[in-house]
Simulated assay, not measured.
Amino acid sequence: MQADSITAALPEMLAALGETAVMLLITVPIAVLAAIPVGVLLWASRPGGLRPAPRLHQVVNAVVNLVRSFPFLILLIAMIPVTRLIVGTSVGTVAVTVPLCVNAIAYLSRFVEQNLLQIDPGVIEAAQAMGASKLRTIWSVLLVEARPALAGSITIMVVSFISYSAIAGLVGGGGIGDFAIRHGYYRYETGVMIAAVVVMIVLVQLIQLTGTLTARRLDKRL
């Protein structure tokens, strides 16, 4: 009986997996492209940073903290007008990527800042002693040294945001997490829910393995 239920739900499960993939393929590149500059700005503008700007740092820091303090469910609902303005609708897989991107940028930018703080200041001082500009120091030294840590942080973000697909169902976003809840909680199809959870576990393990291998390749010490 359970096997029949799983077989019947397989097309819907694959569609849900595709929706999760769409969310990640839209959210992750946008988050990385936006969060790295924000994280660099937080690092550079902090007291004792490469280019201290206390007021700017306070503003950016406050905005990042504000976004990160919102539970994703509340952020999802609060951003409905903005989402509708950007994509023309507040319902669907593409619509849910708007609050996902906002949350991911704040989430990852804090990781980026912490990754940069872990870099040996002597490396930066050596680059500047050789005449490198501040922009050159950031691009050619700072971000290069931080690549393994950045790869690890991006992996953590991707794994964390897979779980948000369960909340995405509230606005018709779909996703494998929403699929598991609908079948396991609303329809009492335990076998289907377990199958969906297994798919999520496999997906997370693949992403984690890819991220770990990427970080090792980028680490010059290994």
Rank of each mutant, 00 (worst) to 15 (best):
N65E: 13
A21D: 07
T89N: 14
I30R: 03
L85G: 08
P71S: 12
N65Y: 06
I30P: 04
T27Y: 05
A78F: 13
H57V: 05
E19G: 08
V22R: 08
P47S: 12
P71H: 10
S45P: 02
V67N: 05
A78L: 15
Q58V: 02
I36K: 01
I80G: 02
I86T: 09
V28T: 14
L24S: 05
E19S: 12
G48I: 09
V28R: 00
A78H: 04
R68F: 06
P99H: 07
P54H: 09
H57K: 04
A95S: 13
P81L: 11
V60Q: 10
P47E: 11
G48L: 09
I86K: 03
V22D: 07
L100R: 05
R46Q: 15
L76D: 05
L75F: 09
V102P: 02
V67I: 15
G39S: 04
A44Y: 00
G48W: 08
W43F: 13
P29G: 11
A21N: 04
G49L: 10
S69T: 14
L66G: 11
V64S: 02
V38R: 07
V59K: 08
E19R: 12
T83K: 01
I36S: 00
A95D: 05
P52M: 07
P99W: 01
L33C: 12
A21W: 05
S90M: 09
R68Q: 14
L76T: 06
V28I: 15
G88M: 09
L76C: 11
I77A: 14
A53Q: 14
T27V: 10
V94C: 00
R55A: 15
G39H: 04
I77W: 01
L25W: 03
A62S: 14
V102F: 14
A21H: 01
I36D: 06
L24F: 01
R84F: 09
I86E: 02
L85C: 00
V91D: 03
V40P: 08
L85S: 14
V94E: 03
V59C: 06
R46L: 06
R68L: 13
S45W: 10
L50P: 00
L100A: 10
G92T: 11
M23T: 01
E19M: 15
I77C: 09
I26C: 07
A62C: 06
L24P: 00
L33Y: 04
R51C: 00
V63G: 10
L85Q: 14
A21S: 12
A62G: 12
T83E: 03
M79Q: 03
L75H: 03
L50Q: 01
L33G: 11
R46C: 07
R84T: 15
L85V: 02
V59P: 00
P54E: 12
A34N: 04
Q58C: 06
T83D: 05
L56W: 13
I74D: 00
